[in-house]
Design a protein around this nucleic acid. Structure first.
Lengths: 126, 126
DNA sequence: TGACAAGTACGAAGTCTTTCGTATTTTGAT
DNA sequence: ATCAAAATACGAAAGACTTCGTACTTGTCA
């Protein structure tokens, strides 16, 4: 089960964007990706916990350890999404999509993108 | 900010479905809506907390209090969704919809429903 | 080589969520 | 009037998350 917490998700975001990074890298990139800054050792601790949970891989060969995401962005998003679908949408992804579409501020181009995806899936009932 | 926690969401689900209910009602309906059962006083306590947070309204005129959802299901879903969009989808609802669609098991009829919604929104850029 | 900088490890505190036990109050029936 | 049943109120404990201070280690360079 992959359900990163909030802080973990913020860190994963940095790792997904930057690729393998040191604690210092993450610590410096975080404030941009998130609201406020957190202490260096906080980031370190989080990364250690995430390594235990197998959310990140850690390369300890050098003195300065290098961390990399161990879960993909798409997979993680999928898990979070299906978690939300279960908790708040009665298990219906469709209900979620409809809700998202009815409040989403999407441009015509984006709507067209969705339409194309629908075309691809046409008749693809399972 | 309306961000019900997990347990709160389960209770809101019961209230949305049943309408105004007593603690006992909720306590009895919960196991079905959720995995396992929880104690009666647990439900009571949660409802009290939710009343403080203004997630539910409480009618204390009778000895047995009656609770009703104070937030709508659609609004709450919207909040949870935009929260997830912010935390995990870089603020792009489109990205969320695409991800949901690519893993959703939707029937042709459901896909058609989405298509209709898209038609309605055509040229409706905002 | 000695000390300073940069790193990691560890533990602990604070907050939030969930859970429930116990105490108290109220109602109604005998 | 009394007692039992049913309800609410309260407090506290356990677990998860987040945060950071402090201690310890290691490498560098003057």
């Amino acid at each position: 089960m992959i359900r990163p917490t909030n802080a973990e998700l913020a860190i994963l975001g940095v790792l997904w964007q930057r690729g393998p990074s040191t604690v210092r890298d993450v610590h410096e990139a975080l404030p941009a990706a998130r609201g406020g800054a957190v202490g260096y050792t906080t980031v370190l601790k989080l990364l250690q916990i995430m390594a235990e949970k197998k959310l990140v891989k850690r390369d300890t060969r050098a003195r300065t350890h290098v961390y990399a995401a161990a879960v993909s962005e798409a997979t993680t998003r999928g898990h979070l999404l299906s978690d939300l679908v279960d908790r708040a949408f009665g298990g219906s992804s469709l209900a979620l999509v409809l809700q998202a579409l009815s409040s989403a501020h999407a441009t015509p181009a984006e709507l067209e993108q969705i339409r194309r995806l629908l075309d691809e899936r046409k008749g693809d009932s399972r």
